[in-house]
């Protein structure tokens, strides 16, 4: 199971929204196979019936009152944007 193919790497890169070159795909195929191969050692352990730990503290559904308050202004929200127009973020065309 630990052998990852170059095609898989390209698919995962697309899912992760990363553009990778052919050379990078080849390198990542090797590196990810090694890391996943290393991780396969977990299969030595019988985890039948073991509950997964997602969070170490015994807390869930921490609620607070939904109270509106002023945070940042529109101008501030746009302050770090790489491109903006008329009080909006501006991005390239979404559809061709």
């Amino acid at each position: 199971m630990s052998d990852i193919t170059k095609d898989q790497v390209k698919h995962v890169a697309h899912l992760a929204r990363l553009a990778i070159t052919e050379d990078e795909a080849a390198e990542l195929t090797k590196e990810l196979s090694a890391i996943i191969g290393f991780a396969e050692q977990l299969n030595e352990l019988d985890t039948e019936g073991v509950e997964p730990t997602t969070h170490v503290l015994n807390m869930k559904n921490v609620m607070r009152k939904d109270e509106p308050k002023a945070t940042i202004t529109q101008e501030e929200a746009l302050k770090n944007a790489p491109d903006k127009k008329d009080g909006h973020y501006r991005v390239p065309a979404i559809m061709d």
Partner: peptide, 15 residues
């Protein structure tokens, strides 16, 4: 299941 969930189960054993 094979990787992420398995790792979380092992995390339980470590804890």
């Amino acid at each position: 299941d094979a990787y992420y969930k398995k790792a979380q189960k092992v995390r339980t054993l470590i804890k």
